[in-house]
Design a protein around this nucleic acid. Structure first.
Lengths: 244, 244
DNA sequence: CGGCTTCTTGATCAAGGTCAACCTTTGTGG
DNA sequence: CCACAAAGGTTGACCTTGATCAAGAAGCCG
């Protein structure tokens, strides 16, 4: 993708993200030092390594994950356009999560200490910034709660609805359908299931007439019933999302 | 507990927490508007409610939790002295996690917009602040990963080791033993197990000679073997922890 | 000493893991 | 355009982990 100035950022135009004033935007533009394209499967951040650079996902899908001793991968977070990548690895000496591209991705690169400048110059932005972190934590909280009590197909249904709504906010879902590039193995690592059982669960959702998934796409057939099945409440988000 | 000025805060003296300069400390002192004692079992923050106040746990144990529709509780985080409480509920419109005291607790109260002032006046503190949030996220990440793959007793062992190390950093554990006020039911809600199975798992750790728990206390008998059993690595923490 | 709550132990059962065979897609080269 | 290989997905059989239900055993008050 051609280099995009933050002033012309296609994401920033979306209602979903907060706006900066022209001069703040100018500052953010100067903080963006590079833009890189990576193919599907590329490792964006190596787990266990310290990083100096902070990324924003401009387009494409990625996963934040962690490996355990046995070599099994657990996906901790699904990263969609607008997601900040690498905060763990810039702030912690021994961050053990990494990030990998699921589709071809385009990344905005913020070198040096963008957060220093951010908090110096864009001081009043810390509330949206923290709110966005809290929103992500909320998502993790829900996941934790569900893992404790619900069955595989309920968890899958919840994950699909939540993901669909995130995509819709990015303008990447309409009429119940969305591009959805995850494979069985990814679902397994996200939900903490075996890929075999993910298969069974998707079959169940399909049999119930709730949703079908095939060939990189997701279709939700009966939103209302599926939300009941999953115990999903689409709550209005807390304000706009922060975008560096 | 008598009102403690931040300048005389017993926690701040610990090596575990970062230090402020005298004038910053003075500022924080003025932000602390109150100090309250609550008995064991008291609800510190009501789930689902918006809150204006931010708390710091000065002494005692508390749990951040969330209820599901079926009325089951899931503990999301164990809060020990120094923990910030209520960030979710001040920043999000619809925060659904609450906090409850496990032991009698003493809370420092920060009214109004302490974070505003913090970031205005203590601007350079944002790195420790975010680092601390990332450290807590790391703990959650590990928990998520374990839930996916490990057995109940391994998860319990990991949780005990992690908790023990947190207590040790607070000077509340020596020689393998620590005050540990959680009940079977709390463990169940933390680990996402039934209390019955927590019982079996503690029995297993005891039979293996790794650790025993009785009467509000935890004793780790064979740290090394237990760490191997749990796959636990006590990594040096990333810098000091932020304490408002 | 009852009358609580918490903890333990046992028996049964269901959700999901594992292993293995087979089916579908997709891609590649002749 | 077909043949075949490789990767991903589905289905089935069996087994393990941990949930559920229920009955006792400790503690812990009054």
């Amino acid at each position: 993708m051609n280099f995009v100035s933050c002033k012309d950022c296609p994401l920033r135009g979306l209602n979903h993200f907060g706006n900066f004033t022209a001069d703040k935007l100018e500052l953010v533009s100067t903080l963006k030092t590079d833009q890189i394209d990576l193919p599907a499967g590329a490792r964006i951040i190596e787990p266990g390594k310290r990083a100096k650079r902070l990324f924003t996902l401009l387009s494409g899908w990625a996963l934040r994950y962690r490996m355990n001793d046995a070599g099994a991968r657990k996906v901790l977070e699904v990263l969609l356009p607008g997601s900040l990548i690498g905060l763990q690895n810039t702030l912690q000496h021994h961050a053990s999560s990494g990030a990998v591209a699921v589709t071809p991705v385009t990344l905005c690169v913020f070198d040096g200490n963008p957060l220093d400048e951010l908090f110096e110059e864009l001081q009043e932005q810390y509330v949206p910034f923290l709110s966005t972190m809290m929103e992500d934590q909320r998502r993790a909280d829900v996941r934790a709660m569900q893992n404790a009590k619900h069955t595989a197909s309920v968890r899958l249904a919840y994950f699909l609805l939540d993901s669909y709504d995130r995509l819709a906010e990015l303008g990447q879902a309409q009429g119940g359908s969305a591009y959805f590039p995850l494979q069985r193995r990814d679902f397994a690592d996200i939900l903490g299931l075996s890929d075999t059982h993910v298969s069974r669960s998707t079959a169940e959702l399909s049999e119930r007439g709730l949703a079908t998934m095939r060939a990189n796409s997701l279709t939700i057939h009966a939103r209302q019933r599926m939300a009941e099945f999953a115990g999903y409440l689409s709550h209005r988000r807390t304000g706009k999302r922060f975008l560096l």
